Simulated scan of single mutants.
Amino acid sequence: MGGHEFGAAVRQLRESTAPAAVGLPVGRRRVRGLRREELGELAGMSADYVRRPEQGRSHPSAGVVNAIARALRIGRAEYERLCALAGYAAVAGQVPNEIGPGALGLLERFTDTPMFVSDAAMNLVAVNSAFLALGHWEPTGGPWEWNIAWRTFCDPCRAFRQSATEATVHEAVLVARLRSTLLRYPGDLSLAALVDEMRSRSRPFDTLWRTPRPVTAYESSAAFVQPEGDPVTLVGSLLAIPGDDLAALLLTATPGSADAARLAEIVGGTGGPAVIRVGQSGPG
């Protein structure tokens, strides 16, 4: 990751941190959040020392990253992100799987759109009723039954079908995300075990792990086979949820298409809660 990405992340965190949240008086302010001088004072460094990495003019040491994280009192997920952007591995990191208000809000607002939220290890954390209405995700009782990568490479859902081209895109995204997650959370033993088991069980996964394909897009389409009626083809679009190190996947149909009409039929009769938390026995 480049220094400009780290600097942009620090500036965004600084400007979004309320002074009262870090023990500073509020008073009259002409800028959002904290001033560079205030962050420097809290972190034990000069304002210029904060300015240079923010502007991408110097590479921070691991100690500087830790000092900034402590000064801003950020959560574990944001700390892991800063470490990754600066090129360091966080110590004793575990994949976070707490679903925050941002992710909950997405699931609650898009009730007619099949959607799930997953952690960085690609375990499903929560889904909405529209996602369950597709009926393709069949729990198997295995240790990683709720893990997207595992189900894709080692235990495919029978009612989920992709063309070779779409599968290539989908698989490249899964491997890229897992590789990035393992770099950010080297202390998560369950995550390491998942990767090792997948490399042993799936030759395609092992090949991609050793020689990753470039990720060109974070969306792909698939056909969801229905017990009655024609399959419905949907496009899955992956959205990052900043701060919690979670991601949301929305499944949508082309507006005005037969698939859109079929999807409306499928999810139209769903009831129950807007958010369904699902089991996680894998890493995270």
Score class of each variant (00 low, 15 high):
147 N>Y: 10
8 A>E: 15
131 F>M: 07
7 G>F: 05
143 P>E: 15
33 G>T: 05
50 V>L: 03
62 A>M: 02
119 D>W: 03
61 S>I: 01
43 A>Y: 04
59 H>R: 15
123 N>P: 01
111 T>L: 09
239 L>D: 14
136 H>F: 15
114 P>H: 11
231 P>Q: 06
29 R>A: 03
191 L>F: 13
229 G>W: 11
191 L>V: 11
172 A>L: 08
50 V>T: 05
8 A>N: 13
40 G>N: 02
123 N>H: 09
108 E>M: 01
260 A>V: 12
86 A>F: 07
191 L>S: 11
197 E>H: 14
183 L>Y: 12
116 F>E: 07
231 P>V: 00
7 G>A: 05
102 G>W: 03
194 L>I: 10
268 G>D: 13
255 P>G: 12
155 D>H: 11
66 N>S: 13
269 G>W: 09
62 A>G: 05
199 R>M: 06
60 P>M: 03
231 P>W: 06
47 A>P: 01
5 E>Q: 11
91 V>Y: 09
205 F>C: 01
164 A>P: 08
268 G>M: 04
22 V>Y: 12
277 R>N: 09
230 D>L: 06
221 S>A: 15
90 A>V: 07
25 P>M: 03
264 A>D: 15
30 R>F: 03
215 V>W: 11
8 A>C: 03
244 D>V: 08
261 A>M: 13
267 V>W: 09
9 A>L: 10
185 Y>N: 12
171 E>M: 00
80 E>S: 09
29 R>E: 08
218 Y>S: 05
39 L>V: 15
41 E>M: 06
42 L>K: 08
29 R>M: 00
15 E>R: 11
84 A>P: 08
126 A>H: 10
101 P>Y: 08
254 T>N: 14
267 V>A: 05
173 V>N: 09
192 A>Y: 04
114 P>R: 00
85 L>C: 06
200 S>E: 15
221 S>N: 07
278 V>Y: 13
28 R>Y: 04
137 W>P: 01
71 A>K: 03
158 R>N: 07
165 T>D: 15
269 G>N: 14
20 A>S: 12
40 G>F: 01
238 L>W: 10
179 R>P: 11
16 S>D: 15
30 R>D: 11
266 I>H: 13
278 V>W: 12
67 A>S: 09
216 T>A: 12
180 S>Y: 03
122 M>T: 14
102 G>Q: 11
274 A>P: 06
230 D>W: 00
251 L>C: 13
168 T>L: 03
270 T>N: 10
183 L>I: 01
213 R>H: 15
101 P>V: 09
140 T>F: 04
271 G>K: 01
85 L>V: 03
41 E>H: 09
237 S>C: 13
83 C>G: 08
46 S>V: 02
19 P>Q: 07
86 A>P: 13
190 S>Y: 12
210 R>I: 07
140 T>L: 02
31 V>D: 07
21 A>M: 05
131 F>C: 04
237 S>M: 13
137 W>C: 00
3 G>K: 06
153 F>D: 06
198 M>N: 08
8 A>K: 11
27 G>L: 01
175 V>W: 10
1 M>C: 08
218 Y>L: 11
253 A>E: 14
43 A>C: 00
207 T>C: 00
164 A>I: 08
135 G>W: 12
186 P>S: 04
216 T>I: 06
18 A>I: 01
95 V>K: 02
263 L>A: 13
53 P>V: 02
96 P>Q: 06
33 G>D: 13
44 G>A: 01
49 Y>M: 06
94 Q>L: 10
124 L>E: 14
215 V>L: 07
